[in-house]
Design a protein around this nucleic acid. Structure first.
Lengths: 227, 227
DNA sequence: GTTTTGAAGATTGTATAAAATATAAAAAGA
DNA sequence: TCTTTTTATATTTTATACAATCTTCAAAAC
């Protein structure tokens, strides 16, 4: 796992730029421009774009190139509904199997969170932290395929989560809920924990939708479509 | 959608060969050999393999190449559990929104099934038919992301489903259940339909596991590992 | 006898360059 | 003037060639 091929490096960086909003939905990603950016040939760039296509961040049109995907409100709602379903399944399986070590690990991640929060907002790393916590929580379930699907759903919705964080103070709320979630898990309160998780996810979803619809209303004048 | 790039063509064909069992789990897929096979350069082959990696049929190891993935019994069980979860969700959303047209379409697919069954086993097309029926059933739910996940789970488990069909008479059983499923959906019996769906999926899973464990017992002598 | 080292061979990963295709603009015809 | 065809340009897609990495196997050291 030490070695990182150029294609993988480029993929990681382009993903980062997409999630940060540098490439909004619908922008074309020109292969030679990116190749020049990273000072590599177009082939690793192409492979990177294919990887991102698999993740749902990018879509290829034959002989026309790669474009970043656009998510509608309906699709965001669907993604978060699926998260509720899958993460609920994972948490339900995980709680009875949680060891002390697993609980400590999740708690450790939470504390790092808190520390990072005190020293500035750090939106950039927030997504990774967030996913790390959820992953730690679900890890005892030992369901790698389900985790994989959850991870996919996360990458698809990540950029909108970031957008929400820019406009609202959702981090503190999420952070409090994470603490509660861990506490309920520790006590083995499966149903209560799953209910909280469901609220946790769905309220985040509504926050994003609110921002999105607000944004649409605010900037309905220019730069609507690029394709 | 008419045009098919070479990379896509190669990907479709290699997928077919993997699912048919020509490349069992763990075999290395050499790029130049495949390139010679299809009379193209290695680059479209490489892109095809990357696509298949995204689908979970193949795994890349840096500077070592691509290998077909191996599924354990535990992983198969996990995949089918996820199918129960997601397809149940889909069916539950779909039934209340089913129009006459949607029901007819599903029924039409079923009848084609039956016709194909009478004129010979046709295992090769069975997977496509099977997925087409389930898709038609879930289509009224209008949840493309969920369908996408279900499709992923299907491609991953497909080759083992085919294997099961070779050894057992599961097609007829599945066909009967499909008819019942459609009937319950038509009558709006949401809970009963979902319960039947769950049984339908889980029993198929157990059938596969039985074959797998039987096969392992039968051929424990030669050609165990290639890597 | 076991382990380690190193060179040869094979295979993947990347760069450069040519071919194929789509988009856009210009010219010809109605 | 509008439509259709042609041509030109830009971009993607594929082929060829080269570089980097891994595997293998034999020889040497312990």
């Amino acid at each position: 796992m030490a070695y990182k091929t150029r294609a993988r490096f480029v993929a990681d960086d382009i993903r980062h730029r997409i999630l940060n909003g540098e490439f909004p939905g619908g922008t074309q990603l020109r292969q030679d421009a990116l190749a020049a950016d990273y000072d590599v040939s177009r082939i690793p760039v192409r492979e990177a774009l294919l990887t991102l296509e698999a993740e749902g961040l990018v879509e290829f049109y034959p002989h026309r190139g790669a474009f970043t995907t656009e998510l509608s409100v309906a699709k965001i709602r669907e993604l978060f509904d699926l998260r509720v379903l899958l993460e609920g399944h994972l948490l339900r399986q995980a709680i009875p199997r949680m060891t002390e070590a697993a609980l400590h690990k999740a708690e450790h991640i939470l504390q790092e969170y808190d520390a990072a929060l005190d020293s500035g907002s750090q939106i950039d790393n927030w997504s990774d932290y967030n996913f790390a916590f959820h992953e730690a929580l679900y890890h005892p379930a030992d369901l790698p395929e389900a985790m994989n699907l959850v991870s996919q759903l996360n990458t698809k919705s990540d950029r909108y989560i970031r957008m929400q964080l820019l406009y609202t103070q959702a981090i503190e709320k999420a952070e409090r809920e994470h603490h509660d979630l861990l506490e309920l898990s520790r006590q083995g309160e499966v149903d209560a924990a799953c209910q909280l998780l469901e609220r946790h996810i769905l309220e985040a979803c509504e926050g994003i939708v609110a921002v999105l619809e607000g944004r649409v209303q605010a900037s309905q004048t220019p730069d609507t479509a690029q394709l």
